[in-house]
């Protein structure tokens, strides 16, 4: 049902924010450098989709984020399930996993630039290195969180090997794996844009950095807004996938488990 009052209040807040922005920009207290006029930003936003450069930047950012996420998932999920299923391996790797999950991977960038140059490959490796850990950690967690009753059931009914892995262990860990993937999706976009901002690897982040150097603050804000929509879209897309994959899970069914 469409909620009229809610919609009106949202429009009012939006208008208020715009007016504040307009006033702040006109007063010049924050400097045009930081805060361009809203109209300049919107006209840039409308122009952008007609520029080939914009689409290529968007494509390059998405490509590194998506590819990096996929590689991280292909490595992280099986590795995490194996580590989580073997208490000895889990204990031996616990410190390392803890160490790397809290490691600010972006600090590795200067080293990787030395090794691979400021290239798409370097960006991709950065994304994989950052996106791997949430997926790995959650997969380990999921593999370790098996209901004792389910464990007893598989033992009692002699379910083991491949059937146990694909029919029991994997779906059981899936809610956790999805959480890891969601965190990593956000991280992979963050890292792609971060690397582009800091090195001269093409993408949305690079456009922001270049526009900033040119003093084109409307362009900077326009690209920041684009990156926001990118993040929002990925988030929504991911939520839809999650609802589909975990249709059986209490959190999706809207129950309190």
């Amino acid at each position: 049902m469409f909620d009229n009052r809610k919609f009106i209040s949202q429009v009012l807040v939006g208008a208020g924010l715009l007016a504040l922005w307009q006033l702040a920009a006109m007063s010049g207290t924050m400097g045009r450098d930081l805060l361009p006029l809203p109209l300049d930003v919107f006209s840039r936003l409308i122009e952008l989709p007609f520029e080939a450069r914009f689409w290529s930047a968007l494509q390059l950012t998405l490509a590194s984020a998506f590819l990096g996420l996929c590689i991280a998932a292909v490595i992280g999920i099986p590795l995490g399930l194996i580590i989580g299923a073997n208490p000895r391996v889990y204990r031996a790797t616990r410190f390392l996993v803890d160490l790397f999950r809290s490691w600010p991977i972006i600090a590795l960038m200067p080293v990787l630039v030395l090794l691979f140059g400021a290239s798409f490959k370097m960006k991709l490796i950065m994304v994989v290195l950052a996106a791997l850990w949430p997926i790995l950690v959650q997969s380990i967690y999921g593999a370790r969180r098996v209901e004792p009753t389910i464990e007893d059931m598989t033992l009692s009914y002699g379910i083991g090997g491949r059937v146990k892995f694909f029919e029991v262990a994997l779906p059981n860990a899936l809610p956790f794996i999805m959480t890891g993937l969601r965190i990593s999706t956000a991280l992979s976009v963050l890292l792609s844009i971060g690397v582009e901002v800091l090195s001269s690897v093409p993408g949305i982040g690079y456009e922001i950095a270049i526009a900033r150097i040119d003093g084109a603050s409307a362009e900077v804000i326009a690209y920041v807004i684009v990156s926001g929509f990118l993040g929002l879209t990925l988030n929504q897309a991911f939520a839809a996938i999650e609802r589909y994959v975990l249709a059986w899970h209490p959190s999706v069914r809207g129950e309190t488990a």
Partner: peptide, 10 residues
């Protein structure tokens, strides 16, 4: 605990 011994994804 039937609710736990049956697999919710099947």
């Amino acid at each position: 605990d039937y609710s736990r011994s049956l697999l919710p994804w099947m």
